[in-house]
Design a protein around this nucleic acid. Structure first.
Length: 154
DNA sequence: GCCAACGTTGGC
DNA sequence: GCCAACGTTGGC
């Protein structure tokens, strides 16, 4: 099993929004960055664990956990002219963008702010700190374990 | 709202 | 294929 960090702006889609979906299942769509797309398309597997990170908001940091529920499949928004994620250069025969379904696992017991991640020796080399703009990021097992520990109630 | 970092586009 | 211009991300 692999570990991932998925970023979302909570004003657009938060851990609460995912929890409130039917059966806690949502679609992680709208990825329009090639590096993130490649990770999603080529590296994610059903059952992988996801750290749900809230970005671009008042409190940035780790808000919850989810899991990868489906294999990657073409993102339907790329074919929808009404969507801001519409891509006229994409086609059904050769779709450019993919998405996965994800399932809510839980909220963190204790919110883990980015500032604390930056201060933590075991976490300050995360992609999140060094390449912060990537919206789908691999997480090392050691980092995963540390984040699990830091998001528990003390 | 600012701005640094960085990704994308398009002319040549 | 280079690179300048431009757009987006995201912390603060």
């Amino acid at each position: 099993m692999k570990y991932w960090l998925f970023k979302s702006e909570p004003d657009a889609y938060s851990i609460d929004d995912l929890k409130n979906e039917e059966n806690g299942v949502g679609r992680w769509d709208g990825i329009r960055n090639y590096q993130a797309r490649n990770l999603l398309r080529d590296k994610t597997s059903v059952g992988d664990a996801i750290i749900f990170y809230h970005s671009s908001c008042k409190n940035v940091g780790v808000a919850g956990y989810a899991e990868v529920l489906s294999a990657p499949y073409p993102d339907p928004l790329q074919f929808d002219p009404e969507s801001k994620y519409y891509d006229p250069k994409s086609s059904a025969e050769n779709p450019r963008w993919v998405c996965v379904d994800v399932k809510y696992t839980k909220h963190v017991s204790r919110f883990l702010p980015l500032s604390e991640i930056k201060q933590c020796d075991e976490l300050n080399e995360m992609v999140l700190v060094n390449r912060s703009r990537l919206s789908i990021q691999p997480v090392k097992e050691t980092e995963w374990l540390k984040i699990k520990e830091l998001t528990k109630n003390s």
